[in-house]
Simulated assay, not measured.
Amino acid sequence: MTYTGDVTPAGPPAIRELPGLTITKYAVDPRMANNCYLLRCTATGAQLLVDAADDAPALLELTGGIVDTIVTTHQHWDHHRALADLAAVTRPMTVAGAPDADAIESATGVPVSRRVGDGDVVRVGDVELEVIAIAGHTPGSICLLYRDPAGHPHLWTGDALFPGGVGATFGDADAFATLIDQVETKIFDRLPDETWFYPGHGGDSTLGTERPSLPDWRARGW
């Protein structure tokens, strides 16, 4: 089946097969509808989970109980509710943006093995994911970029970027200015229109689809 990125909480996952990477998107929690992404290196079988958001039993089933790395995109509670339970079983390396790491450790009781920033590389088997730090939604939010050598880039954005706008900044004008500036300069100015992005909630999109709306987002202030 053609991958669309459309999933519903506790419904079937959406699976995308790339030459070197299998992407499995799974939604949890009907109220928050968080997306969790399992990335599997097809050459080595290594697995990385983006956001252990909720429902540890379902995520353990999805992963087969084997997770080499868990990346938490940011410190907000809804993105790491299953982290402690998954970490207790799978003993993964845990990764988070350096400015958010203390808050994640405090909330979950799980030490962050690796605190990352702009330009760092997180590996899942033979696959390299570049860290793009995007402040504003939280101080230490991170995105992960995969430059598929056989196709277009793929970008996991957490709550920094969604179809239709950037993440919430809760009425903080300075935080919004930081977020929209960094999304524009670090993502839209660097990456091509065909870049497919995978947000922390809801459906996916491409940068080309969203690019014409950037001036409107900036003008409305959210």
Results as ranks from 00 to 15, higher is better:
D189S: 15
L155H: 05
T138H: 11
I66H: 15
V50T: 06
K186C: 04
L145A: 06
G221P: 03
C41Q: 03
R190C: 13
G158N: 07
E105L: 04
T195A: 01
E17V: 13
D172G: 10
A168R: 14
A46M: 08
T8E: 13
T44R: 06
I180N: 02
Y3G: 09
D85S: 08
G11H: 13
V110G: 00
Y26S: 01
Q182S: 08
G202K: 09
L161Q: 01
T195G: 05
R16K: 14
G158S: 11
G97K: 00
L214A: 12
P163G: 07
L155E: 03
A150C: 07
G64D: 10
D78R: 14
A27H: 01
G45S: 13
Y3P: 01
D216P: 00
E61A: 14
P163W: 12
G171W: 14
A173S: 14
L60I: 06
D78C: 15
G119L: 11
A175V: 03
C143A: 12
E105F: 13
I66L: 10
A96E: 02
K186A: 05
C36F: 01
M93N: 11
A14F: 11
I180Q: 05
L60C: 08
S205F: 05
V124L: 06
I132S: 01
A58M: 10
R211L: 04
V122N: 05
G119M: 14
A98Q: 15
A58V: 14
T73S: 11
E128L: 06
P215I: 03
L83K: 01
G65S: 12
A84F: 08
L144M: 04
D189C: 09
F170I: 06
I134S: 02
A160M: 05
E128M: 07
P139T: 09
T72P: 11
T195C: 08
K186Y: 04
H74K: 07
L86F: 07
W222M: 10
L21N: 01
G164Y: 13
L129Q: 01
E17I: 08
T195N: 03
I134A: 04
G119I: 08
L38W: 06
A133T: 10
P139A: 15
L60D: 01
P153G: 01
Y3L: 07
G208K: 02
Y146L: 10
M32T: 14
L39F: 12
R91G: 09
L49V: 07
R115M: 06
I187G: 01
G158D: 02
L129H: 06
A87D: 04
H80M: 09
T42G: 13
T209G: 03
D55Q: 09
A88L: 07
V122Q: 03
G164A: 08
A173L: 13
L39H: 00
A175I: 07
V71K: 00
P139I: 07
D181C: 06
F162L: 04
W217V: 12
I187N: 03
H74L: 09
T206G: 04
W222T: 09
L48R: 08
G117N: 06
G202S: 11
P12I: 06
A133M: 10
A133V: 04
H80F: 03
R123H: 15
